[in-house]
Amino acid sequence: MKYFREISVALALLALLIALAIVAPAFYQPQPLLSLATREAPTLIVACGMALVIICRQIDISVASQFAICSVCAGLLASMKLPLVIVLPASICIGAILGSINGVLIAGLGLPSIVVTLATMVTWREALRWQRQGEFVNLPDNVQWFGLSQSAGQWTVIAIAITLLLVLAVCMNRMAAGRFVYAVGSDAEAARLAGIPPQRVTFLTFAFMGALVGLAAMMNVVQSPQVDPKSGTGIELKTIAAVVVGGVAISGGRGNLWGAFAGILLLACISPALTHLHIESYWEKAIQGMIILLAVVADGIRTKRGSA
């Protein structure tokens, strides 16, 4: 079945939501749900980029460090009293530059993306710590919630993330560039024969991933009066888990953003669900790991049965 994975993730999510409705109806209060959605909006944006990268048969584990750098830089620019119309594009540009560095090393030199992004992850992270020594950036008043009221700001963040998801999902399906990513991830050699340059597509995917991280970082910065230099920690695992669970094959060329969206929703609900179901939240990471393993094992068994 073509949408087997997307549907099964959606069903799992539905089951979780129903269980919560019965056991812990307190989960369904508008205010906490709104702040949950706002909190997870940046993750969704990064997950969209991660889906593209994995569809292109690559991986990027440096996103957390990119996220932190973009956040701090955006915070510093904002604290220099620059208006948001400048800070936002600047943050996106910084992300795109960081992503391009990955892209050059991976597409240009043909190095494995896992090790390259591992290296850039630690380089950026340590460089940031060195420069900032873990210092928070205080933001001027007009930055939080874009200078709007809290609920208006929350809705803006959610709207931006959802709009991005919609636009990207449509582009991946209905724009040639999106199909090129699928083609390269499915078979780079066949893509070359069809006149699609695999290296350029790979490079641009990483650069775009960086730009999305810059946007996501900005969506995170506006949520609090300060910028935490550690913000974004663990986002790489969460987004990889969401994307893989949502049916994007780690072998490239398969899957879509709707699956990644379902995956993010599922993972986002786990943490509050644990609280409401009176399970300690320390289990979250272990459950995430289990979900990744379950997803790849399911894929492995399916391909094994398919080939035998």
Binding site: R179, Y182, A183, G185, S186, D187, E189, A190, A191, L193, A194, G195, I196, A249, G252, G253, R254
Partner: peptide
């Protein structure tokens, strides 16, 4: 020399 993950229509179209 086709893309295994893409539809027949798309394989034809990409060329």
């Amino acid at each position: 020399a086709l893309f295994p993950d893409l539809s027949a229509a798309e394989n034809i179209a990409l060329g």
